[in-house]
Design a protein around this nucleic acid. Sequence first.
DNA 1: CCGGGGTGTGTTAGCGCTAACATCATTCAC
DNA 2: GTGAATGATGTTAGCGCTAACACACCCCGG
Lengths: 339, 339
Amino acid sequence: MSADPSPRRPAVMTDVARLAGVSHQTVSRVLNGSPRVRPTTRDKVLRAIKELDYRPNAMARGLVSRRSHVVGVITFDTILFGPASTLLGIERAARTAGYGVSIATLERLNRANILEAVDTLTGRGVDGIIIIAPQLAVTAALRDLPAGMRAVAVEASHNAGAPSVAVDQVAGARLAVEHLLSLGHKTVWHISGPGDWLEARDRVSGWRQCLEEVGAAVPPAIGGDWSARSGYAAGGILAGQAGATAVFAANDQMALGLMRALHERGVRVPEDVSIVGFDDIPEAEFLSPPLTTVRQDFDEVGRRGIATLLRLLEDDEPSTDPPIAPTLEVRHSTAAPPR
Amino acid sequence: MSADPSPRRPAVMTDVARLAGVSHQTVSRVLNGSPRVRPTTRDKVLRAIKELDYRPNAMARGLVSRRSHVVGVITFDTILFGPASTLLGIERAARTAGYGVSIATLERLNRANILEAVDTLTGRGVDGIIIIAPQLAVTAALRDLPAGMRAVAVEASHNAGAPSVAVDQVAGARLAVEHLLSLGHKTVWHISGPGDWLEARDRVSGWRQCLEEVGAAVPPAIGGDWSARSGYAAGGILAGQAGATAVFAANDQMALGLMRALHERGVRVPEDVSIVGFDDIPEAEFLSPPLTTVRQDFDEVGRRGIATLLRLLEDDEPSTDPPIAPTLEVRHSTAAPPR
DNA sequence: CCGGGGTGTGTTAGCGCTAACATCATTCAC
DNA sequence: GTGAATGATGTTAGCGCTAACACACCCCGG
């Protein structure tokens, strides 16, 4: 009833052709959904394929068709929530579109590394590349990608050397600051991300703009590095500032560290100080108190990244969507200022 | 001095051969480091390669050599700290070994999905597969992988259908429980992970064993699902238990949720209740209070996973290392019980 | 009853590379 | 000086597939 259960060597197209009594080209036509095949023939071929447990060889296919149906993703070597979520979103979107994903991570972000990663991925035959490029160095590197390589940048600035997909970080920061001001705070302090991260800069811009527009004093931004540790350290600085009643942290981890630092000093959140984070990590809702934060839709980032890349592969016409709007999740870490 | 900067079509091996005045086979020899090439010839070829910016075509290479130098990684579609860190560790190790990584994520874990992912990856021509398989369903699926497919399971039970690499979860749990008992607690409660996760089961076993060995009462395990939310919910149950002074949570997120729940009820950590987590997420150190937790070396998991797979590809001899030992990070969430 | 235009199928020629063997110089022992 | 061993290179034949064309065969109108 069934063929040899463990053939020595996996079946190839000619084996299928022989068993079905047709030429290998007819098998190829069936596989590629050509309409020029009689239904009865198609059935014979399909049966033979199943019987031999045949799977087309992707490399042979790719060699002749010049399409691997694999996209490369370059990402910073980290488990930071943003990049990790974006990678997942991209993989999901790619899978839906019938593409595979090959990854290359970078230990250190600089031009040489990035171009090398692009080379490696290109060498492996990917059809295009998505670069998760939140840092300025990356944006710069994008300007001299090898000619002919199709790439899109996500989380990069709009004037990168490639079409880009991004969340509107300025708008996100404004959401946070406006919320705090509307609660009655006179001004808002800011713990920023590292200066070479685009998102960090944009969040600083949004924060500053918003304060300036309402004529509020603009305190100096306190520099952090995304880690809870740096948020904790920022707490030390903030504690010495009498009028600081509201803080916008550029990500949730720093907000968490800050909360720890304030707690140690007996400063209550939100009674004494209100805090807003950024990212909405899964834990944000369960901190003490639950953290008000700005949420970005990373699945959407992934979908748009893949969509933009596929468009680029097909039409060769770069296209850039407007940035994705983030949303504010109000929880219990924000309240009116103490009187 | 230099060739046409933007050739219409990328250079292939014959182009290099022509420019260098040798046969394409000599170029191939240079590329593959054959000793049978005169140094002067090698130089000529190398210069031609650089001049034409030639890169070998991976698909053509793979087609004939039957090696793609890409490994596939199947992972659960999640940004849980463990699996995400493991993926990163694997990529790093693979890169060091000269391999690329193609990923396939699973929305839902069941046999059909896993086998499909294996098929997809195999179809894309990977040399072998690493399955991040923390759930029982995966272990079961491993038993009927397509013949000839080389695979290794990480975070799976030792009697999976494939060679495996794992951290000793039982030992990790014992570390946590012993620490709490040594502080003077009469017994230790446990918030477990989902019952279909191997790691969750092993941590329950370690916890129970340890208590039984010293003749301590074994309270019922409280079921969680890894999320901070479930840890928070467990807090409700625990609060009703008068004698509960020590809790071992099966991961840091649940510990975090629990801390929140206790805080809301005015229960102090560690004065009233001691808590130990598992994983040592980067934030653990900055929770209120800093969390004592069990740390697993995911980089080592990645390295061993790749090493095991490559050994399998070379010798065809399955080999399984002893499990990796986790370590305890003592911080401030644990103390002697209240008297 | 014959030519034109579909259909369905087979044949041939590569894609860019490596493996295997063939070929031609050298070198060196005797 | 001769033959065998060795070294450096070229030639040929695929890997498994798709693209392009060639070829039957059928149906149809004139």
